[in-house]
């Protein structure tokens, strides 16, 4: 008898993975070692997990995936924990608003359409992500930027070279540039994103335009690291992006939207990580 009177509560100062008992630290792992299955291979897998801080380590299976390769499924219990209360994540700084509200803000506070150019750059041919943000139809029931009355949204499609994108942006006097990157092998996405920003900097465009990156492996911190103003990842909706653009545009004019909040009820801060 442990003398417990109810379910154990989570300790946020020492957060651990949960299996079926609070704080059990259970983790499921799967990996391959480039050696034939053997008792030694199994032991190697166990030691490897121990070095990662797992104890005990239970090898659920060791399979011969091919000659000279064993694939393992393993359960281990970790002794490590993290202090959840001390965690800080950089998030896109914008309040989430609805399309009508955003249009209204632009109409009343800016008085002209904001020009937004979108493209999937480099040799990346994936258009579905940028289309989801830009095209009328939008994504997950949220209309795309083309649908906004007060945005002049132009989708340049895929395989757009960085230098062409900037040229088009200058010609169009763009207020915001949206870049999609999907292929990430060998970090090609980061290379392309950084290259764009280096060019933009050289041309003195950083202050004139808002640079937004997006894609399934893009995060806000990663975008910042590449020199962008904001980054959006999996599941982004067009209104998330529009909310950010309008707020950032006004922020650069020295206007904070918080003071002159229109009638809409206060909502949670947009949380994109």
């Amino acid at each position: 008898m442990s003398g417990e009177t109810g379910p154990r509560k989570v300790n946020l100062k020492k957060l651990r993975p949960y299996g079926d008992i609070m704080d059990d630290g259970t983790v499921q792992l799967c990996f391959t070692l480039p050696v034939e299955p053997s008792p030694e291979a199994r032991e190697a897998a166990v030691q490897f997990c121990q070095k990662m801080g797992f104890d005990p380590v239970k090898v659920a299976t060791m399979e011969k995936a091919a000659e000279g390769f064993s694939t393992f499924v393993i359960y281990g219990n970790t002794k490590f924990s993290v202090d959840f209360t001390a965690i800080k994540v950089l998030k896109v700084d914008a309040q989430k608003r609805a399309r009508e509200e955003i249009d209204e803000i632009i109409r009343t506070r800016i008085g002209r359409k904001l020009v937004v150019l979108g493209a999937c750059t480099g040799f990346d041919a994936h258009t579905v992500g940028i289309d989801a943000i830009m095209n009328m139809k939008g994504f997950a029931g949220d209309y795309g930027l083309e649908r906004y009355q007060w945005l002049d949204a132009r989708n340049l499609g895929a395989q757009v070279l960085n230098e062409d994108l900037l040229k088009r942006a200058v010609e169009a006097k763009a207020d915001a540039i949206l870049v999609s990157k999907v292929v990430t092998q060998h970090n090609i996405h980061q290379r392309d994103l950084k290259d764009l920003m280096a060019r933009a900097k050289k041309q003195g465009l950083l202050e004139k335009m808002i640079f937004v990156a997006g894609g399934p492996r893009v995060t806000h911190p990663l975008a910042l690291e590449c020199g962008f103003d904001a980054g959006f990842g999996v599941g982004t909706k067009p209104s998330d992006v529009a909310s950010y653009i309008v707020e950032e545009f006004l922020r650069r004019q020295g206007v904070s939207l918080d003071e002159a909040k229109p009638k809409a009820p206060a909502r949670k801060k947009g949380k994109k990580s």
Binding site: T32, A65, T71, T184, Q185
Partner: peptide
């Protein structure tokens, strides 16, 4: 990602 050995297996 493009498949790992174990994904294919």
């Amino acid at each position: 990602h493009t498949p790992l050995l174990q994904d294919r297996w």
